[in-house]
Design a protein around this nucleic acid. Sequence first.
DNA 1: GCCTGTGAAGACGTTCACAGCA
DNA 2: TGCTGTGAACGTCTTCACAGGC
Lengths: 209, 209
Amino acid sequence: MKFLKIPAATITRLSIYSRVLEDMEKQAVPVISSKLLAELCGVNPAQIRKDLAYFGQFGVRGVGYYVKELIFDIRKILGLNKEWRVAIVGMGNLGCALIAHGNFAKQGYRFVAAFDADPMKIGRKLATGLVIQPVTEIVAVCRQAEADLGVICTPAEAAQDVANRFAQVPIKGILNFAPIQIQLPDGFKVENVDFTVKLDNLAYHLTAG
Amino acid sequence: MKFLKIPAATITRLSIYSRVLEDMEKQAVPVISSKLLAELCGVNPAQIRKDLAYFGQFGVRGVGYYVKELIFDIRKILGLNKEWRVAIVGMGNLGCALIAHGNFAKQGYRFVAAFDADPMKIGRKLATGLVIQPVTEIVAVCRQAEADLGVICTPAEAAQDVANRFAQVPIKGILNFAPIQIQLPDGFKVENVDFTVKLDNLAYHLTAG
DNA sequence: GCCTGTGAAGACGTTCACAGCA
DNA sequence: TGCTGTGAACGTCTTCACAGGC
């Protein structure tokens, strides 16, 4: 599917388009133009058309895009036409909040394993029915549970060790909430979510901008 | 301070550099070269020198950068040489997890007000001593508490309303965890943290890449 | 010799402007 | 007419390569 080089930003935007489109669908909007979608997403209309053009032709000239079809097409492009099985490590406040968070399930992500290093927490049953298991079992349990993706919510010190275990499974996609740059061989993809980096951006813009 | 146009990515990287440098400082490393720092951050050495060059000269030729000084300089660039006062709305699992999260306090961000729409939660006292107040009081309480930044952890439906209230305070920098594009006039800066967008990126790369 | 600081070159992503089609 | 699809123009960011200085 990947003939041209797709900008990383394009993928991120497709994800946002799909979120906005789902909203439109809920409001029973049947068709949308790149102009309106662009406004709702805060981007340029040509950007949207170009992003989609990397993957094919999805619109109707003179009309626009059929909302329902476009949602389907984008989800297919992103690989969301399957259930993704997610393992999560570090069941502190944040880890528990993520499991309880409704948006993951809605988008097709399902938590299939949970781990923690704290012996006090092991064996505890979470709201979803998952039982917390020891981090030493990550490789075995994730293989058994056929996990595709890993989420790291541990303190920074533990994050690299967890990533190494994920790598052995192998789990090739990791969402990392620890404020540290994880080092992994090529072929592994780490996405970082760093709240303080975002806050630092705000601080800078309010200070200098 | 802002003579040239600074790339947005530069600010994000400065924030990451500071995080890695703080790690170096803890390990009592006195001096670091752009080459080593680049490896630890996963970027090109010239990138680091260029990023810093936007703001001045911080290194010593033939030697490198003094870790402690560079941390200080970067924090000053980002505007982190003051305490930032943060208001947070939506005290569900995620909101509570954020308040409990140690990294914010460590970087100079202090929660000074918490809000929720649920009458059952109002008046409840959080671990930090903060008392949850009704969202209708956002403007008054934030002014009183002199909040600089706002964090939105509400469901998507409530996020725009909360942002509008922040805008009236006025709070000009908002960290938004709701999966929706918030619309605000120029002069306001919104940073989005959207977990599912990140997961979608992983899904795409594991599917197509 | 070594590493920073920086103009110039190159790569990349975005926007424009219009051709193509309902 | 209206809106998509897309090559070309533009602007921005990154990397190179070397001059400058310890």
